[in-house]
Amino acid sequence: MVNFVLVAGARLGAWAWGEVVPYLRAAGHGVYPLTLSGLADKQGVPAGQATHVQDIVAEVERQGLRDVVLVGHSYSGIPAGQAAERIGDRLTRVVFVDSSVPTDGESFVSAWPDGGAAVEASIAENGGFWPLAPAAHYDGEGLTDEQIARLVRGSTPHPGATLTEPAVLAGPLGELPATYILCVMPGAEPDDAEPDEDVAELLNSKRWRLAKMDTGHWPMFSQPRELAQILLNAAVE
């Protein structure tokens, strides 16, 4: 038995894992979907990047968890990668679901083509929050209209500081036992079918594994059973 701690991406909360959780529990594992500060049912709680890292560490410690498989989706790969380092021997594996990965001294938006200028401007114009994405943002991602409606309905504005403040790593990320799940829609351009350069470099580590899914960026909605199976496989690698 392992304990899965599940952290969804920007604008989302623990609710986003609703269709994945039953598959993991049915396999006999502990499952702890987590809402980060300032989001979903924790709206109104001030949050920066370090807050989100501490949210994850505190959940592991509060629940007394060991044999932890820590799962970070999209944005949440940034705090999950940092937290994985800090929970030490409680960690079995960290899984990055089509996510960003942390680089010491760099933020979530640092790697964006404009250095994050557009996101920072949007945050400034929206009271310190990254605003909600419209339904059209989810087009072409293998989602049904109902799934898109749930995503839009459940999303909350994202605390801007968590996106612009730098990650802090004590050691090389490649030393952690990790699985990277790359989501690629069928028919995608060749460049989109391979990991980004920073992830490709990490995959050179003997401790990292790559898994691919034939779906879009929100597999917990579009392919929850398939995602759960990859998480179960990662737990025993």
Rank of each mutant, 00 (worst) to 15 (best):
V97Y: 04
I123M: 06
V57P: 06
D104W: 13
V71P: 02
A117I: 08
A50Y: 06
H52K: 01
S107Q: 09
A84S: 10
L70I: 12
P79N: 05
R66A: 14
A83N: 11
G72Y: 12
L70T: 12
E61F: 01
E120L: 12
S76A: 15
G88A: 14
R93T: 11
T51E: 13
R62M: 04
V69I: 11
D98P: 10
T51I: 11
T51W: 08
E61D: 15
W112C: 08
S110V: 11
V57K: 03
A58C: 05
R93Y: 02
V57L: 04
T51L: 12
V119A: 14
A50S: 14
D98Y: 04
L65T: 03
R86K: 15
D55Y: 00
E85F: 04
S100A: 15
V119K: 05
V53F: 02
G105K: 00
R62K: 13
G72W: 14
S107E: 02
S76V: 10
F108N: 11
S110T: 15
S74D: 06
V68H: 06
G81T: 08
R86Q: 15
V97G: 00
V97R: 01
D67L: 11
S99K: 05
G88V: 14
G64D: 01
I56G: 04
V109M: 09
Q54N: 12
G72T: 13
D104T: 12
Y75E: 10
T51R: 12
S107Y: 07
D114A: 01
V57M: 03
G48L: 08
R66F: 12
R90Y: 01
Q49Y: 15
I123R: 07
A80V: 15
V71K: 07
S107M: 04
R86E: 14
V53S: 03
P79R: 01
F108Y: 15
E85Y: 04
V119I: 14
D89S: 15
D67E: 14
S76D: 12
P102W: 08
E59I: 10
S76G: 09
V68L: 05
V97K: 02
P79S: 08
L91T: 00
I123Q: 10
A111K: 11
E106L: 14
L70R: 05
Y75G: 11
V95Y: 04
G48H: 07
S122N: 12
A111Q: 14
Q63M: 05
G48W: 06
S74M: 02
E106Q: 15
T92P: 03
G116H: 00
R86A: 10
P79Q: 04
P102Y: 01
I78R: 07
E59G: 08
S74W: 03
I56V: 13
I123N: 10
S76P: 08
Q49H: 15
P79K: 03
V68C: 05
